[in-house]
Design a protein around this nucleic acid. Structure first.
Lengths: 157, 157
DNA sequence: TTGTGTGCAAAAGCTTTGCATGTTG
DNA sequence: CAACATGCAAAGCTTTTGCACACAA
């Protein structure tokens, strides 16, 4: 069940990416689709280097340059989201078939948890109107200490 | 009026920083206070390099290492806020005497506008409770196209 | 006086770029 | 077959680190 849903999603994103490449007169190279597949087989947040390493492990010979290039393309057609969770390092996640959400980050163990709150959409549209911005997206990160790390801290006292 | 308020604030942040250094048994060096003064004489968002350049222009011989070190210290005692507006570059702003706010960023011209909405505090405390995180701070950025850039875009069509 | 802070420069880490080669349309 | 994409390595940019000297406590 999960796998058939997974392959269904992969088919859809492949079509979207394919159409995007056609529309922009870009080439459909095997490297680009390998990267798309690798990203959609993951369920977590990852950075460019991790993606590069995983592709290498799978004997897919894709260079860093191509990884960065393709991440940019996928970001351009909204198939991935790009984040900066306080570090000087871009992290990504797939976004198709994954409902809009924001993040809570543990400043101790760096764990990332997702959450949804409809009020953010309201703030977004209200502020866009008020300040005359055409808002395209947002990023809300809450930073704090998760339950597990709170216990660790208490032990130390 | 503005200047007297400015110097009043500067006195206060100097005291806070001074106390923080004492409490942590760190030294009160002239460099650290030069940097604090420079930051509180600005009203915008800046990065480490801009701060370094401005100090150099004013003949204050402070090294990059000290700038980064001091930014870290000031961040530790909440006298500055640190942001990542989508770029791989940390940007800072003074935070004392400046009420809590979030940011709208124009993706075209990079202009940053501040706004406040009390609902964010509510989301923050609700989610902290729900997910058992002790939330310390948050970062909400809205991204879009500002009025001016919308006009530029329309002209181009 | 002692050890922390500083300046300087080198190194590190992420990302981009240049160039020769390969491959898509 | 022409233009674009790729791989590789070098360069670019921000930030961190190592070391000798300076100076706050």
């Amino acid at each position: 069940m999960v796998n058939s849903r997974q392959s269904e999603i992969f088919q859809e994103v492949k079509n979207i990416f394919s159409a995007h490449l056609e529309n922009h007169q870009l080439r459909k190279t095997p490297e680009r689709f390998s990267i798309l597949e690798e990203i959609y087989s993951r369920n977590d947040h990852f950075d460019a280097e991790e993606l590069f390493e995983d592709l290498k492990k799978k004997q897919l010979n894709v260079s860093r340059a191509t990884v960065y290039n393709t991440l940019e393309l996928l970001h351009g057609c909204d198939l991935i989201k790009k984040h900066q969770f306080g570090k000087n390092l871009a992290q990504y996640e797939k976004s198709y078939g994954h409902k809009q959400h924001d993040h809570i980050i543990c400043v101790d163990c760096k764990k990332v948890v997702e959450f949804c709150d409809p009020r953010i959409q309201q703030i977004q549209s209200m502020m866009g109107e008020l300040l005359n911005f055409k808002i395209t997206h947002h990023s809300l990160n809450l930073y704090g200490i998760c339950g597990t790390c709170q216990i660790q801290r208490d032990k130390r006292v």
